[in-house]
Design a protein around this nucleic acid. Structure first.
Lengths: 348, 348
DNA sequence: GATTAGCACTCATCGCTGACGAGTGCTAAG
DNA sequence: CTTAGCACTCGTCAGCGATGAGTGCTAATC
């Protein structure tokens, strides 16, 4: 694309993101390309419209970027957002003081929303993506046992089980070890076969059932707590949602686990991704754009953080915030206990 | 108040709740008091307005209830909502399958929102309100120890501590017992004195600091996770929030822990309470009403569940939902482990 | 004395109209 | 290729009258 067309597309996009009003040729000539006349810009804009980068809400209005326009803007025109190492460092420290992964992720969602001033989306890892340390059954009282699942990084899950077997410390310790081994073997997928193997390790039917439920909860991809949204009120700040019915629809969808899962590409995000309008898999959210990035530990992707806002989103700010938070979170997880290299003294 | 005035006030309130439109004399005559002429009703309504029970949005509109009108309606006129024991039973069972208090409360919030079709509010108990069972320090790896706090009903808290002391099982066991005793002694208030006593029980400075943070988290009245709101999109269904700016303000406030705390009367709720409009402590929520009830175990109040909606709320449905959920949740907590009477075998 | 029919009055809502202005596309001149 | 000029489009807004829902008041009725 010729240089001047690019400038104009950038000008339209920047100005529209800034003001929310369709941008006319005069505005561009004045604010962005002094020395070129509005008429020239009009001609160029007509071309850009024909090529599909711009749209006109109605005949006598200015232009706004189309999805394609935004796409070109994000990929080629936008000034690449600079991450500030000091800020990342500070975020990282805040995540570290959360002490464990769950809390850090939760905090990340809140921070991201506040930072970007858009609603934030967060997807937590399932157990499959974590590195299992050990499973432990701790006695609670005569009829109950506490199931603890410890994994890296800094993940502790607990659940109370009705215990219908003998509860000697010996017995529990033994079962714990068997369970740890079993889960290690089946790390990755928890299939029907695995469920059958469970019977061998855990012969007491009530406890077994509840254990299976717990594992289900730990491993299911689409549960109600797998992904959540923070800062919904930022949505209503956007002038495009002055239409309440639309806002309601969007907020409703954002609280639906199925939708969130699809929106976040089932957690299959390898790097920072910008999804613009129609590119969205979720119909009712086609009026929105999403910026998301994976967080993880070393090579391993654990989950996704992102923001969702109107198509007319400040992509630069959004990308910057998401990048910073994802990277700070990853860094924090890197140094969270149980220390990776550390030996694992068995619990006794 | 004379019978006919009551009938009219009830009719206005019922109809306004139903339709959201100011109610005129003709409507009442036709739908609620056939046999009485509109003129008579007009006279009565003029009286009711003078007494402060009704308001007129503008001269040629029908009447709507004032806060006082709603108050009278709720206290005297409304058909008392019947709780359905079968439904409560069913809710109770669902809560029981959540296995622990946290999950049950979370579920209660979701159910309540879905049931009432208003946004639900939930306040969790602090540790002070629970019955401490025991504190336990479990070895994680060479540098970390897992802090577990177990309380009744069905409450398990875990947090990873950096451990700068010796980590022999013996040592940890001993510290656990000392900590359990200390927390038992200071059940109720965790003051500066208690914090000093902590030094005696836990001489390792890093671990002590982090322990203090954990206790702080468990006991603070107004933390970001003490109370939360579920089902915000129900808010936008209400015609009174067609004004987005207002809706935004309200949603924003509902995500502020301070505001939620005040809204839920700091958890000091002894029985079902209806708070109408201006009676609200939070300025910006004066356009809303709240119905809330305590849940707990036996005599002990643990927290509050409630709903918030427009002043023109279906109080009957709201009260019914809140009553049912609060009572089902309480019943579920009653039979959650660790069993109340059960002995407490020390962990070893 | 309470009730009600009748009537004048108020006021929000709606559809229509015309003025306004932002912005365009086209044409012809530079 | 650029640009000045101009006719044209169309959304927005203020003004206007019609409409209708609903009222308060008065006088007649039970």
């Amino acid at each position: 694309m010729e240089d001047r067309k690019q400038r104009i597309l950038r000008a339209v996009t920047d100005d529209y993101i800034l003001t929310g009003e369709p941008v006319g040729s005069r505005t561009i000539a004045r604010k962005y390309l002094p020395g070129v006349s509005p008429a020239t810009i009009r001609n160029e804009m007509a071309d850009l419209e024909e090529q599909g980068y711009l749209e006109q809400p109605h005949a006598s209005a200015g232009r706004i970027p189309s999805d394609l326009g935004y796409r070109y803007y994000v990929d080629e025109l936008m000034e690449p957002p600079s991450t500030d190492p000091a800020e990342v460092q500070e975020l990282r420290e805040q995540f570290l003081t959360s002490r464990d992964m769950e809390r850090a992720i939760r905090l990340a969602g809140r921070m991201l929303a506040r930072e970007s001033r858009y609603s934030s989306l967060v997807m937590r890892p399932t157990l499959q993506r974590l590195q299992l340390r050990h499973v432990r059954l701790a006695p609670l009282d005569e009829e109950h046992v506490l199931l603890l699942v410890v994994a890296e990084p800094a993940f502790v899950y607990n659940r109370i089980l009705d215990w219908d077997g003998p509860a000697h410390p010996r017995e529990l310790e033994q079962r714990s070890e068997l369970l740890t081994d079993l889960l290690h073997d089946f790390a990755g997928q928890w299939t029907r076969t695995a469920l059958e193997s469970l019977a061998a390790v855990m012969p007491y039917s009530t406890a077994r059932e509840q254990l299976a439920e717990a594992l289900q909860e730990l491993m299911q991809e689409r549960g109600p707590d797998r992904a959540y949204v923070e800062g919904v009120s930022y949505f209503l700040e956007q002038p495009e949602f002055r239409n309440v019915e639309m806002a309601r629809q969007v907020l409703d969808d954002l609280h639906n686990p199925e939708v969130l899962d699809r929106l976040l590409m089932h957690g299959q995000v390898e790097q920072l991704v910008v999804v613009i309008g129609q590119e969205q898999p979720v119909m009712s959210l086609r009026c929105c754009s999403v910026v998301m990035a994976p967080y993880g530990r070393g090579e391993r992707v654990l989950g996704v953080v992102g923001v969702i806002g109107p198509r007319r989103m400040d992509y630069r700010r959004a990308v910057r915030s998401v990048q910073q938070v994802a990277s700070a979170l990853s860094q924090a997880l890197e140094s969270m206990p149980p220390t990776r290299g550390g030996s694992l003294p068995e619990d006794r």
